[in-house]
Amino acid sequence: MSDLFAPPGGWRVRILDLSGSAEDNIVEEIGGFPTLMQANAFARRYVRDSVELCRAAGATAREVLDAWFAYGEDAEVQDAGEAGWRSGTELSDFAERPAGGEERDWRALDPRRTGDDESNDEGDLGA
C-alpha cells in the first residue's frame, strides 16, 4: 500500500491488551486516521501513555517493562507494513525516561473525538 494514500475509511490502529484478558488480545480498532503520520503518532502516544500507567514510583526500567508486558496495552497501525510505527523500537527508551503530558496525549489525535466534545473517554486506558 502506498504511504501517500489512506485505505478506504482511513488508517486503522489496533489496540492490544498484553494481559491477555481480551479475546485474541484485541481491545479495539480505531479507524478514520486521514494520514499514516497521524495514525503512527496516535499509536506511539497510546503506548507511551500505557507505559506510564504501568510505571510505579522508584521502579527500574526493567520493572516498568515487566509491568507493561503484564498489564499494558500495545498499539499497531494496520496495513502499514514497514511504514507503521512499532512499539519495540522505542520501548527501552520509554521505560528509561518518564514521559511529559504531550508525549502521552493520544486523545488529541483520536479521530473519534469531535471538536466540541472535550471529554470523549471512549477507549481510555485504565477505564
Rank of each mutant, 00 (worst) to 15 (best):
M1N: 03
L4S: 12
L4W: 04
L4Q: 11
F5Y: 09
A6M: 07
A6V: 12
P8I: 06
G9P: 06
G9H: 06
V13A: 10
R14Q: 10
S19C: 13
E23A: 07
V27G: 06
I30W: 07
G31K: 05
P34E: 12
T35P: 14
M37Q: 10
Q38C: 14
A41G: 05
A41I: 03
F42H: 02
R45G: 01
R45H: 01
Y46A: 00
R48M: 07
R48T: 15
D49E: 14
L53G: 11
A56Y: 02
A56Q: 14
A59F: 02
T60Y: 10
T60E: 15
T60V: 05
E63Q: 12
E63A: 10
L65V: 01
D66R: 00
A67T: 00
W68L: 03
F69G: 07
A70N: 11
G72T: 02
E73I: 03
D74A: 13
D74T: 10
A75F: 06
A75W: 01
D79K: 08
E82M: 08
G84V: 06
G84E: 08
S87T: 05
S87V: 03
S87G: 07
G88Q: 03
F94M: 15
F94N: 07
A95C: 13
E96H: 12
R97Q: 13
R97S: 12
P98W: 06
P98R: 08
P98E: 09
G100P: 04
G101N: 14
G101Q: 15
E102C: 12
E103Y: 08
R104A: 06
D105H: 00
W106I: 14
R112H: 04
R112Q: 03
T114G: 15
G115I: 04
G115K: 09
D116H: 07
D117L: 06
E118P: 03
E118V: 08
S119P: 00
S119G: 01
N120I: 00
N120W: 00
E122T: 02
E122F: 02
D124K: 03
G126P: 10
A127W: 02
A127N: 15
